[in-house]
Computed example of a mutant assay.
Amino acid sequence: MKRLRAEGMTMTAQATQGGFDFGTAQSIERLFVGLMLPAAQAGQAVEVRRRSQELYGLKEGRNEVRSDRLHVTLIHVGDYAGSIRADVAAEVSAVIAAMERPSFVVSFDRVGSFGGAPGRHPHVLLGEAGVEALKAFRLSLWEAIHRRLKKTLSNPQFNPHVTLMYGEARLPERAVAPISWRATEVELIHSEVGRSTYHTLGRWPLG
């Protein structure tokens, strides 16, 4: 499993799958399956965010998701105290490698905000018809992973979105020029929560 040996990453079996006491002094290590935005589409998403900041008088550079971190979370596998679970990462990898992985087109054409913690409302890209193929793939992925692990921090319901930033208030929804691409790979990612650091543990082609 060479893909599980990402530089700078420590993986042990000390934490409990599926969450822990967030009051702990230990770091929060997140494991998720994601679809990263290609560079061109990430650039378009950044322009949408800048327009939102202009429209509503928000400061740039505050609570923004970095352009190279823009993604769609497909499966939130788990959060762990101190280190992720190498055995869980290996099982998820095996599931993805064994399943059918068709390619599909993704298109987001709206932007709006979700509810969230006070001062932390996600401002997100959204779609309707343009995300139906993504939703179908994600459901098959969730079913396959859930059969193997029995428990994750995701459920069958799925509202595809890309988080652009976090804001003090919920912003009105508006239409934007479609941000579209053909998804060509899916990734298993270890996120060091709060440190904007991602480690890609594996990549699998689509199509």
Rank of each mutant, 00 (worst) to 15 (best):
G57E: 05
Y56G: 08
P205G: 11
G34E: 07
V77Y: 04
K150M: 14
Q14P: 01
R195N: 11
K59W: 03
T24G: 08
S191Q: 07
L70Y: 04
T197A: 14
Q17I: 14
E91G: 01
R85F: 06
V111S: 06
R147I: 10
F32L: 13
G194A: 02
A98G: 07
F108R: 00
A98Q: 09
W142Q: 06
E29D: 09
T152W: 02
D109M: 03
R3A: 11
S107M: 06
E173G: 12
G127W: 00
S103V: 00
V95K: 01
V77P: 01
P118S: 09
G116T: 00
Q17H: 15
S154M: 07
G194L: 10
T163N: 08
A129K: 10
S83L: 09
W181P: 05
H161L: 02
A183T: 06
T184K: 15
A117G: 10
D21P: 06
E47Y: 05
L149W: 02
A129Q: 14
G82V: 02
T16L: 10
Q17E: 13
L153M: 15
G202N: 05
L125G: 13
Q44S: 06
A90S: 11
F108K: 02
R85S: 07
W204N: 08
N155D: 11
Q26P: 01
V105Q: 15
H76Y: 12
W204C: 06
Q17M: 14
A117R: 09
Q53A: 03
S103I: 00
L31E: 01
L139H: 15
S27L: 12
E132T: 08
P205A: 07
P160M: 02
L31K: 02
N155W: 11
Q53H: 12
L141R: 01
V48T: 12
E132S: 13
L126E: 05
A144M: 09
H123T: 09
V124W: 00
A86Q: 10
S154Y: 04
A45F: 02
E173M: 10
S113N: 02
D87C: 10
R66W: 10
Y198G: 06
M99R: 08
F104K: 04
V65T: 08
T10P: 00
A81Q: 02
H146Y: 06
Y166K: 11
A42T: 03
L149E: 09
G57W: 05
L4F: 06
R148H: 12
R50L: 09
T163A: 03
L4Y: 00
A177R: 12
A13E: 15
P205T: 11
L153H: 02
L206D: 06
K59R: 14
E168L: 08
I75N: 05
V72L: 04
A25G: 13
E47Q: 15
T184V: 12
E173C: 10
A129P: 09
F22M: 14
L171E: 08
V186R: 05
N159Q: 12
R182E: 10
V46G: 07
G8T: 03
L134N: 00
Q14C: 06
E192Q: 12
I28F: 02
Q41K: 02
L201C: 04
H199L: 13
E64W: 04
A133W: 01
H190D: 08
P118I: 11
H123F: 15
S154C: 07
A90M: 05
G19V: 01
L126S: 08
Y80N: 01
A86E: 15
R66Q: 13
A81T: 01
H71Q: 10
S140H: 12
A90W: 01
